[in-house]
Design a protein around this nucleic acid. Structure first.
Lengths: 252, 252
DNA sequence: AGCCGATCTGAGCGGAACTTGAGGATCACG
DNA sequence: CGTGATCCTCAAGTTCCGCTCAGATCGGCT
């Protein structure tokens, strides 16, 4: 899970990077608002799932950055700042921030809040946002084609029968089921299901896909897209033009 | 914009209804968790855009309600409570709340936060929402599988026999028993049972789980979920909501 | 201080989960 | 129809993770 940290104090940043890393985040550190905005330009990598924006920078600047971010992207933003006054809080939230945390904060609570906004996921709000890779992270149990995926219980059932899955199998299915029909590229799958940048050398992904198919016993559900990745076939094939991939076809 | 207010204090509720009304919200007031869950059953009206959940009710009860809501629906939930301690905050957020506001709060900030979560909104989702009556509302001391957990007295009994537990063991059990069936991740357990941000370096968690299992002497109760964490196995309601399949008696 | 239970740490074990490799099947494309 | 690339399956390794035990440390109480 990628996270963008905007923080000018190196010591604070280093500490946060360490802790967040230990909790499974792949952190990119931006030292300034400018750098942050650059980092948010879609580049084919996975999009950031959340932005941690410190307002410790040259006073008002942070608000400016938040509003710029919000103008161009739907990525969730958490403001972190020493400014505890009500006016700033309200102002920050109204600029489009998803949460506003004041220092000193408890690390556990910050983590919980990060998870809260991350699971809410990026949804291109009203604005027409150039965020093609934005994954509509859906909450509550997923259900489609008789498969019920209960994320918090890590349980999967097909037509009422419980299907025990291993960790990788479950994560894989949960990822693909987020957007049935959409093709997930191999690198994308690896970075979501396998932590840290790890390129699957061997046949790892195929094997897990294989055992997932076996256990679900729903032929045709998990489809391989040659040279790209995998996807789930949705039940109501509302003209899935098959080109409905998040990847721009231009890139090879 | 419809909003569901869960609050048992009539005076507080009346004030909130007035203010929220003035700000363009159509407020439905539920006096109890049960009423709230009823109100959330899809009925053809517009779905609620946000739930304001007061935890002032009988102690721990509010957390239950939040977890029940989240089990069946993706509607954004803001917890409003006087409980300011870190444990409660983290727990509330981990249960799926989108925000956690402590009293006394500033009305302007609350409004800003309501707008923040409503902005993200949960898509009404084509997903079937399981009927909440499938989930029995559980009050007072937790009880399941013959285990009785009295949170106030910190007493646990199995089939009537008192089982003395240490602090950590009790906290651990109480946490897991909050929502039998759901998987609690290691980090989550650490941040709620231990002081926040604590990294379990050694085999601490396993040891405590071990002694808890020994003392309860109920094999299969506490289940390890490899690579993720632990959960309690509920006695019967494994997946009751999936019975909604009228025709599929192929075999069994 | 001294005791005693509670908590934490480290090593070893066993088994589940994951990875890898090779061979066969299938597909896209000329 | 041939060919190379890609995907699937099977059957080994190999790693990882949770369990247990035993000893060390912590902390409250008399």
């Amino acid at each position: 899970m990628r996270l963008l940290l905007v923080e000018d104090d190196e010591r604070v940043a280093a500490a946060l990077v360490a802790v967040l890393g230990r909790h499974g985040f792949q952190v990119r550190h931006a030292r300034s608002g400018h750098e942050a905005l650059d980092a948010l330009v879609p580049d084919g990598n996975d999009p950031y799932r959340v932005v941690l924006l410190d307002l410790g920078l040259p006073d008002r600047d942070g608000f400016e950055v938040c509003s710029r971010i919000r103008a161009g992207s739907g990525v969730p933003v958490i403001m972190v700042t020493a400014r505890a006054d009500i006016r700033s809080r309200i102002h920050g939230l109204n600029l489009g921030a998803d949460d506003y945390v004041t220092k000193p904060y408890d690390m556990g609570e910050l983590l919980a809040r990060i998870h809260a906004v991350a699971r809410r996921g990026a949804q291109p709000s009203s604005v027409a946002v150039p965020a093609p890779d934005a994954v509509p992270q859906q909450r509550g149990p997923l259900e489609s084609r008789g498969i019920r995926i209960d994320r918090e219980r890590r349980r999967v059932s097909v037509d009422g029968r419980d299907v025990p899955l291993t960790r990788k199998e479950f994560d894989l299915l949960a990822l693909l089921a987020q957007s049935p029909g959409v093709v997930y590229r191999r690198e994308q799958i690896f970075s979501e299901v396998w932590r840290s940048g790890w390129e699957g050398n061997g046949r790892t992904l195929e094997v897990h896909i294989g055992s997932l198919r076996n256990k679900l016993a729903l032929p045709g559900l998990v489809e391989a897209v040659r040279g790209v990745g995998y996807r789930l076939i949705p039940d109501s094939p509302a003209s899935p033009a098959t080109d409905r991939t998040p990847a721009s076809p231009a890139e090879h």
